[in-house]
Design a protein around this nucleic acid. Structure first.
Lengths: 344, 344
DNA sequence: ATGAAAGCGCTAACAA
DNA sequence: TTGTTAGCGCTTTCAT
């Protein structure tokens, strides 16, 4: 070995080191490493060889400061344990893969103040764009987004007043549509089961839409049951038992997500309840999990991956050409009746 | 409104703007904003008021360059769709919350070259530490990790030769232990079902350990079945049907993860197979999902959240005091027999 | 308690 | 095609 093997953290290498090792000016080394401008093949080779031999890793901090360009995209989501958001992140990663942009994730745990803090932290790195879940923010967070001077894409939801661009579905409309389908299938005594999260605005909007949809047919929610925390599948099981004990005459259960819906479905199967004859069921999200169940739960696909991709596309578009922004992309979730809603 | 509402991206605010607005020198403004050094309350107040009024967001790029300090921790995981990794990330986020450090995530899709690329990208931001899943890296990636001069924590797995610190479980030992438990319960014709991922080293080590454990009792794997992609729950169902058709005399199925194990379990329940009497089942991971199933699948908890927390703790420890590094933390997964392995 | 000067490592703009 | 000169917006250090 040629280099000393001190575990000591020696000073990080700089362009200058590569410059000296290769006998080429710092500026030209910089050009080679960024594939910019015209550099002769001979020089290029010399530089690359030296850089590799030394194990040089460019310092993007200095580069970003000098060029006023940062290839980072801030992505802010409420949670990672929901599986919904990892999928969105997957779509974003995928789309950004070859754009030269890098996603940086932050998690808020559904707390508006955390969102504000995370946003502040991320904006201080001067990213090329921000992708943030939801349209509801603290006034300070909204002000930061408005003044950031970079493309902002709010995702998941379109029901509200976006700061800049927005990509998502209308949860209100999703609620209305499933309500209509349920009514049309002849169900009348309908219960709702969902999370007790004051800051999950999308679940709230779905419920509002759902009630509005029922109201069109003069129907009111017959009962409702809420939970928070714990294993969703288990909670779905328990809540279903609870609500059915309390209101045995219910003929339909609408769950605010597929996990608790699947739990409810398993409960019904275990207890020999006639689904969808005596009792209909529906969830929300179209999670992959459902494919493995013995009976397909009715659900609505929330277009998660697609949302991630489109949002990333908008940010990437800005950095390539000078796009204008203010796009509004409303995706249409498809209703899958599955096996848990009676067919006409 | 007092400020003009041009959508125009005006130049971002600098310390100087705050300095001028408050009539305090840039240096003192900087001190106030970082809570460093002695500043009179009067001055502090003036500065904070001005900064808030302007909506100033510090430029960490410049700050990092000047101070040679970056409060970022690079976190590199193979996948987000596995639910295992989101949980680890959750543990990391939680632990880092009040340490002043910020996690930055990168995803490799189980591809060593992607890992190398992501690592290079992240190191170029000069993070305070790196947390990376697994002990297997390309030679170039390993060299980068060794020369980064910052704390490195490899997580999930301890079977191998770490670069610096390591926090995880021994997947080999996990395989051995479950094999012993299965043999002890009297099962003899044992099948394995798992992913066909050449780069999922942990699954591979579990299988190796499993076979070693069986070998202790002079038993060989009777059959095996692999899959890739698709809904794990569904795949588990399908693979179980396939392997049982092919080898009807199997009396135990060991699944490489809980999702396919749950699929297999549902298949058995549907088809009236006597579990655990005629057929025993076990998975791996201890996913929350299992709590909701009608029968508890035998599994082993992989300590995911704990791994995240401990890894983050090591990085945070380095940045506080000057810790030495090279820690090795082996956690012990607990075997939960559940309802799918015969009791003695 | 506050300010002035120098420079972190790189790149834009220009010169040769 | 290559090199030189000035910063980018902060923080460090040293002076006041």
């Amino acid at each position: 070995m040629t280099s000393e093997s001190t575990t000591e953290s020696r000073r990080a290498l700089t362009l200058r080191d590569v410059s000296e090792a290769s006998g080429v000016s710092e500026m030209t080394v910089s050009r080679v490493l960024r594939n910019r401008g015209d550099v002769s093949d001979a020089t290029r080779e010399k530089v690359l060889k030296a850089a590799k031999a030394l194990g040089y890793v460019p310092n993007k901090i200095a580069g970003a400061l000098a060029s006023q360009r940062v290839n980072l995209v801030a992505v802010i989501v409420p949670s990672l344990s929901n599986l919904v958001f990892p999928e969105v992140l997957g779509g974003i990663s995928e789309e950004l893969e070859d754009s030269g942009l890098q996603p940086v994730f932050g998690v808020t745990n559904y707390a508006p103040e955390r969102e504000e803090a995370v946003l502040y932290e991320m904006l201080s790195w001067r990213p090329s764009g921000v992708i943030v879940a939801g349209l509801e923010h603290t006034p300070a967070a909204r002000a930061m987004l408005e003044n950031a001077g970079i493309p902002i894409v709010e995702i998941m939801d379109v029901d509200g007043n976006p700061v800049d661009s927005v990509v998502g579905i209308s949860h209100r409309r999703a609620g209305i549509e499933i309500a209509r389908a349920i009514v049309k299938a002849g169900y009348r005594k309908i219960g709702f089961l969902g999370t007790k999260m004051p800051d999950d605005h999308r679940a709230r909007k779905r419920l509002e839409g759902f009630e509005a949809g029922l109201a069109e047919a003069g129907i009111e929610l017959a009962d409702r049951e809420f939970y928070s925390g714990g294993s969703a599948l288990l909670k779905g099981r328990e809540m279903t038992e609870t609500i059915l004990k309390r209101s045995p005459d219910l003929d339909f259960l609408y769950y605010s997500n597929d996990m608790i819906g699947a739990g409810g479905l398993l409960y019904c199967l275990d207890n020999g309840i006639d689904v969808p004859g005596k009792l209909g069921l529906a969830g929300f999200n179209g999670v992959e999990l459902l494919d493995g169940l013995p009976v397909r739960l009715a659900t609505m696909d929330a277009c998660r991956r697609e949302i991630g991709r489109r949002a990333a596309e908008i940010i990437a578009g800005h950095s390539h050409s000078g796009m204008v922004g203010g796009e509004r992309i409303e995706l249409t979730p498809t209703l899958q009746l599955g096996d848990t809603i009676r067919r006409a």
